[in-house]
């Protein structure tokens, strides 16, 4: 099976950093030195022993807000990814196995949704929808499920024409066996790698929306929104806005490193046991 020493350094780095962020997000109230929305000092104080990352545009502790922000950002992105993944992969697999009119209708619908850039479509829809977290998750999840659908369908279509699937059909196996025992084990690796990429996309997308003022609304903290709150400081040489922006980048890069490693393992078709 999977041994620890087989994991390359880059994947280790990605796993550790991702784990750190997730830990901070889950235990935010315990880890954060100050409450989320409490004003504890002057506006844009520099980094100090009391405030490791300084204070923000209203004098709140930046580190604490970063930690609570991790919570919001990761939670929303994770839920949106879960939604897009479930929706996209179930529909994609079903379309590939059933084929016919169902496949046609679904695929053309997805083509149509993908003909509009995701951000633009989200902006159009958000102009009429109420601005809350549920709306955000639904909009992000549904729009992104188009990409998961395409991948899941393509992978399943490829596998569905393999001789071993044909052999299973000739044996008389039911649709359940074919989807769960023949197709799914072979589709899993690319889909898991895609899961990482979709999560990164969700983080970046949410941050962009919040940065534009259309995502998470204050006083709730999320990283994109914190960039927006502190951006005025940049012209005065105060780098507070760069810290949440960098956090987004670091999280995205670490997840990417992990996804990249999983994707590379996909080529190995020996049941994941290495070279025998």
């Amino acid at each position: 099976m999977l041994t620890l020493k087989n994991i390359p350094l880059s994947a280790w780095l990605g796993l550790i950093v991702t784990g750190l962020f997730v830990f901070a997000a889950v235990f935010a109230p315990l880890v954060a030195p100050f409450p989320n929305a409490e004003i504890v000092g002057d506006v844009w104080e520099p980094m100090s022993a009391a405030h490791w990352l300084g204070t923000d545009n209203l004098g709140r502790d930046l580190l604490s807000r970063m930690i609570f922000g991790a919570r919001t950002t990761i939670l929303i992105a994770a839920l949106a990814t879960a939604l897009s993944f479930t929706l996209g992969s179930i529909l994609g697999f079903t379309a590939a196995v059933i084929g016919g009119w169902f496949d046609q209708t679904m695929s053309r619908g997805v083509d149509l949704l993908m003909a509009i850039p995701t951000l633009i479509f989200a902006l159009v829809v958000l102009s009429v929808l109420p601005g809350n977290i549920v709306t955000l998750i639904l909009v992000m999840g549904i729009l992104d499920s188009t990409r998961v659908y395409r991948l899941a369908r393509a992978v399943a279509v490829d596998i569905n024409v393999m001789d071993y699937v044909e052999a299973a059909k000739l044996r008389g196996e039911g649709r359940g066996w074919i989807i769960f025992r023949e197709i799914l084990p072979n589709a899993l690796s690319p889909l898991v790698a895609e899961l990482g990429l979709r999560f990164i996309f969700a983080v970046l997308f949410l941050s962009a929306l919040s940065f534009l003022g259309l995502g998470v609304q204050p006083p709730e903290a999320d990283w994109g929104g914190m960039v927006k709150e502190n951006k005025e400081g940049i012209v005065f040489g105060i780098p507070a806005a760069l810290i949440p922006a960098a956090a987004i980048a670091v999280l995205a890069i670490s997840v990417n490193l992990v996804a990249d490693w999983i994707l590379n393992r996909t080529t190995d078709l020996k049941g994941g046991r290495g070279n025998g």
Binding site: M162, D163, Y164, A167, E182, P185, N186, L269, G271
Partner: peptide, 10 residues
């Protein structure tokens, strides 16, 4: 093609 006639994960 015996390669693709067997599920590589079995």
């Amino acid at each position: 093609m015996a390669d693709v006639a067997m599920n590589p994960r079995q």
